[in-house]
Design a protein around this nucleic acid. Structure first.
Lengths: 238, 238
DNA sequence: CGGTCCATTGAGCACCATCAAGACTTGTGG
DNA sequence: CCACAAGTCTTGATGGTGCTCAATGGACCG
């Protein structure tokens, strides 16, 4: 199903919105008609930029597949990573609603299919659909809490603690209480891990190896294994 | 005006909401009737706690006058200040909407009149009033951006930069471009200033005096004067 | 086998928290 | 008005954490 006469918009929003946690799930077919007519679906290569920090917020981006890294550039050419968003998430809506320029730069970290919804259309959708507004409010409440938590950690906890949090977070779902080793961090380079916790490759490497010396993890390039989750968790309560 | 038979709720929400930027300003008299019946107005002394981080979010607090400091306690007994809220602002609504415990501790920093609205009532208000939901969405968008910006600065900028930001922020409204000295930071102790930018009294003191040596500010206990705003701003672009 | 990319390891140093006095301000009671 | 006390601000000395620069070690690939 799908309209062969319209190859650009591969799937309609109504079909797309069926996706698990997507905030648009609350919309009716009628309500998705507007974005369906006006949005632009596009496939991005890895490393392409959706928008730069400081750009006027012209559109809201809806990730259908792939992932996007949100970061801020420093005058020195450095990159501060704030977080990543993946399939089923929306990027840039805070700026759109606040009526301010984007506060962050958004770059794809993998080939991604992403729909751009013009700001006006998005704002109109939110204004006309109380359910959507509520949904976004809930979403933003949860997400901003999480982001702030990470940033507080970054500002006030030493690198070891942040490293441990990363290790615990990236596999919490599996083997929550099991003592046995757990495979880790599929396909993240040291550089990327380091950026996620706001440090450098070198420091992260040292930190991981110091944890390894104490038998808490097993580390080799390209593999990372948690040996003792309980001890890791304990390290946070120190 | 006012019902002499009901001394507790000194002013009704409808009268109170008239306040400048308050998110409830969009509500009609009918819509404020519910909170007016159920909320509890109370006068807090300086230093009293509205709620602790981790407490279940039972209420949303509406500041009528005074100010509240939001912070997080560290295991070592330290205090990490996230920000302050004052008259006309709402505290705790993110937790209420997210359905999670409070993420921060809220303590009054001055005698304050504050109304507590039960969570259920607040959620109902938001659900029933699309305008309110939108207003809160806009508010949260703006506020979370600002908070994240400050935390990013705290995590990645040196103390000098944060100090300069504080100096520039606390009087930006007056004499935006004037070269002449500007009085500063009414009634904030060094300790409080230091907490606001995530450092210690000692480091802040040193930083201020090093700025003074370069003629950018004039510093004396209990007074603080910006001598050269442009030079301060330039320091941020370094 | 020589490249390129990534991870690791080392050495040096800047920044900043901490601990410890000293200086100044403010308030209180004689 | 002075003396003392308590609190705040300032200054110094020290050490730890983590960033930078630089070199080495592997891994993968042509």
């Amino acid at each position: 199903m799908g309209t062969p006469s319209e190859p650009k918009a591969v799937d309609g929003c109504f079909a797309c919105r069926a996706r698990h946690d997507h905030p648009f799930r609350c919309l009716t077919a009628d309500e998705t008609a507007v974005p369906e007519r006006t949005h632009v679906s596009h496939i991005y290569q890895r490393g392409q930029t959706l928008f730069y920090e400081g750009n006027p917020a012209l559109a809201v981006y809806c990730i259908k597949s792939g992932s996007v890294r949100l970061s801020r550039m420093t005058r020195g050419g450095g990159e501060i990573v704030i977080g990543t968003r993946s399939a089923g998430e929306i990027v840039g809506f805070r700026a759109a609603i606040a009526g301010q320029p984007y506060g962050l730069t958004a770059v794809t970290t993998a080939p991604s299919r992403i729909c751009a919804i013009p700001r006006d259309v998005f704002v109109e959708m939110v204004t006309n659909s109380p359910t959507l507004a509520l949904e976004l409010l809930r979403l933003l409440s949860i997400r901003s809490r999480a982001t702030e938590g990470q940033l507080i950690s970054r500002a006030h906890e030493p690198v070891v603690a942040r490293t441990v949090r990363l290790l615990l977070a990236t596999h919490g779902q599996q083997d929550a209480d099991a003592q046995r080793p757990v495979e880790q961090l599929a396909g993240l380079s040291r550089e990327e891990m380091a950026l996620l916790i706001g440090t450098t490759r070198e420091t992260l490497s040292r930190t991981l190896h110091s944890l390894a010396e104490r038998g808490l993890v097993e580390v080799s390039p390209s593999r990372l294994r948690v040996l003792n989750m309980e001890a890791l968790r304990a390290r946070l309560r120190t």
